[in-house]
C-alpha cells in the first residue's frame, strides 16, 4: 500500500498521467463543443486516427512537425466534414454515420499507410518535450508541468478558450442554442446548419490535434489503429464532464491516471495481477464513473436529432 501511495505522488507517475491525458483533453473538449451544438460524434475515434495519419504524412513530407500538427487537424476536419455532410446536410442518422466513419478511417489509414509508407517507415519529424527555462527545473512541478510537449500546453489553452467562447460569447451561445432549441435559434435568424457546421469542424480539428499528439509527440510514427479506442474513452468522458470544456481537463487527467496506473502495476510488480486484468482497470473505471455521472447531467435537448427548417 505504501508503495502505491509513493507511486501516486511520484514525479514520473504524475508526469505520465499528464502526457496520457493530452489526446483525451483535445478530443474531449472538441466533442463537448460538437454535442453542445447537437451533433453526436461516435466517429471521434476515426477523426483522431485520421489526424494521427495525416499528421505523420505531412511531417514526413515536409520535415516540419508544426505543419504535421496542422495537417492532423485538417485530417480530423475532413472526417468531420463527411459526418457533417451526412448528418447536417442530409439529416442522416448520427450514430450510424459515426460508426461508418470509424470503420472507414481505420480501413483507409491502414490501406493508405501500407500503400504510401510500405513497411519501411521510421521516425518522422516530431515534437520533443519543451523544457520551459527555469520553471522546468522546479522540483516535482518542473517535470510534471513545465517539460511537456507543445500539445500539452495547447490542450490546456484550447480548453480554456473554448470554455470562454462557449459560455461567454454570442457565438458560443448560438452553439448552445443549436443543441438545446434549434427552432429558437432559427427564429432569431441564425442558421442552425451553419452553427452546427462550425461546432462540428472545431470538434474535427480538436480530435485531429488529439490524434496528431499521439503520433507526433508520443510515438513519432504511424501505426495501424494507433488510437486504440481513446476516442471512445473521450466520448464517455464528455458525458462525465456534463458538457463543460474545462471539466474535460480534470476528467481526462483522472482517466489518464488510471491508464498510467495500469501500465505501472505491471512494470513495477505492484501487485500479482495478470496484465490483462490490470489493463481492464481503466475500462472498468470509465464504466463505473460513467455510471455514476450518467444521470447527473442532462444532455443538450436536441443532441443527435437532425434539424430541418419547418
Amino acid at each position: 500500500m505504501d508503495s502505491l501511495i509513493e507511486l501516486f505522488i511520484s514525479t514520473a507517475f504524475v508526469a505520465s498521467t499528464m502526457r496520457l491525458a493530452v489526446p483525451l483533453i483535445l478530443a474531449g473538449t472538441g466533442e463537448v463543443i460538437s454535442e453542445r451544438a447537437g451533433i453526436l460524434n461516435i466517429g471521434l475515434e476515426g477523426m483522431m486516427l485520421m489526424g494521427s495519419f495525416t499528421a505523420v504524412l505531412a511531417a514526413d513530407a515536409t520535415g516540419d512537425p508544426w505543419l504535421g500538427a496542422l495537417a492532423g487537424a485538417v485530417g480530423g476536419m475532413a472526417v468531420a466534414a463527411v459526418h457533417g455532410g451526412i448528418v447536417i446536410v442530409w439529416s442522416g442518422d448520427q450514430i450510424v454515420s459515426g460508426l461508418a466513419l470509424n470503420l472507414g478511417a481505420l480501413g483507409l489509414t491502414t490501406y493508405l499507410s501500407r500503400r504510401i509508407f510500405g513497411t519501411g517507415q521510421s521516425e518522422v519529424a516530431h515534437f520533443e518535450p519543451i523544457d520551459i527555462p527555469l520553471l522546468s527545473d522546479l522540483p516535482f512541478l518542473g517535470p510534471v508541468l513545465f517539460a511537456q510537449s507543445p500539445f500539452f500546453y495547447f490542450a490546456l489553452a484550447a480548453a480554456a478558450v473554448l470554455s470562454f467562447v462557449l459560455f461567454r460569447t454570442r457565438f458560443g451561445l448560438s452553439w448552445q442554442a443549436a443543441g438545446e432549441d434549434p427552432d429558437a435559434l432559427d427564429s432569431v435568424g441564425i442558421s442552425v446548419g451553419r452553427t452546427r457546421w462550425t461546432a462540428l469542424l472545431v470538434c474535427g480539428a480538436m480530435a485531429g490535434f488529439g490524434g496528431a499528439s499521439i503520433s507526433l509527440a508520443q510515438l513519432f510514427t504511424f501505426i495501424e489503429n494507433m488510437t486504440g479506442g481513446q476516442g471512445f474513452i473521450a466520448l464517455a468522458l464528455v458525458i462525465v464532464t456534463r458538457w463543460r470544456p474545462m471539466w474535460a481537463v480534470g476528467i481526462a487527467l483522472f482517466f489518464a491516471a488510471a491508464d498510467a496506473l495500469s501500465l505501472r502495476i505491471q512494470a513495477l510488480d505492484l501487485a500479482a495481477i495478470p496484465f490483462q486484468l490490470s489493463l481492464m482497470l481503466p475500462l472498468v473505471l470509465t464504466l463505473v464513473v460513467y455510471g455514476f455521472a450518467a444521470r447527473a447531467g442532462r444532455p443538450p435537448a436536441a443532441l443527435g436529432r437532425p434539424w430541418t427548417k419547418a
Binding site: 508520443q218 489503429n225 505491471q266 512494470a267
Partner: peptide
C-alpha cells in the same frame, strides 16, 4: 531484474510508459 509482459506487441505507448515507469524506479 524486473520483467514485464505488456500484453501487446503493437502498443508503442504502452511500451514507452512501462519503460518510463521502470526507469523512474
Amino acid at each position: 531484474v524486473t520483467i514485464t509482459y505488456l500484453g501487446t506487441f503493437d502498443d508503442v505507448e504502452a511500451g514507452k510508459e512501462t519503460a518510463r515507469a521502470m526507469i523512474s524506479s
